[in-house]
Amino acid sequence: MVSVRDAVCLLGNFPALAGADLELESGEVVLLEGPNGAGKSTLLRLCAGLIGLRQGSGDVLGNDLATRGGRQQTRRAVGLLAHHSALYGELTVEENVRFWSRANRAFDADVEPALERLGLSDRLRSVPVAALSAGQRRRTALAVVVCRRARLWLLDEPHAGLDAAGRDLVDGLVRDAAAAGATVLLSSHEIDRATDLAHRVVRVVAGQTPVSGGHS
C-alpha cells in the first residue's frame, strides 16, 4: 500500500525529512508520533504526492513518488486532511462539500450521508464556512475526505479544534474506514486517544523514523 525508504525531502534548503522509512499495509491505522517540527506533516504530504523526493524511494498505491506522473496519480487517489481546511469562507458548508466532491470526482449521492455523519446536515449546512467555529470547519473538511472514499486516508491532526464528541466522531470514522479496507495514516497530539485508535505507532524525530513498527 505504502512503502517509503530512506526518504529525504527538502523544504527550501531545510531537510524536513532526512532518511525516513514507512511501510503501511492495507487496512492498517498507523499513528505518526513526534514533537513539533519532527517531519510528521511532511511525511503525510510526501505520501499524498504533494512534495517530491530529493533522495530515497517511495511507492504509494502503486505510484512512484519519484516521478511527477506518479505523484499526480497519488494525489488523485488519496484523501488528505491537512492543517488548512481548504474551505471557501464565503460558501456554505453544503456548497463547499459539493464543490470538492465534484472536483474529486466523487459521487454526489455521497454528500448527504457525509454531512449527516459529521453532524452538518441540519441548520449548519446553509451557514457560510467563515461563520463556523474551528471545530465545525474541521468537521466540514472531514466531510470532504469522507466523500472521497479514498483507499488511503492521510489525516494531519484530525482531532485538533474538536470537542469530545467531535473527537469521538473522528475515531469512529477512522475505525469504519479501516474496517472497509482503507489504510489510515494520522498524526495527532492527542496521544492517548490516537494510540488507542492506531494498530501501530511510528515515531518521527528530526525527519527520521528511528523506531518504527512497534504495535500498540
Binding site: 488528505l80 491537512a82 474551505l87
Partner: peptide
C-alpha cells in the same frame, strides 16, 4: 487570494480536475 486563504490551491492539486 480566495485560493490561498485556506490552502485551497494545494487542495486543487489533490483533485482530479
Amino acid at each position: 487570494a480566495i485560493e490561498s486563504a485556506d490552502g485551497s490551491l494545494e487542495a486543487l492539486r489533490l483533485t482530479g480536475l
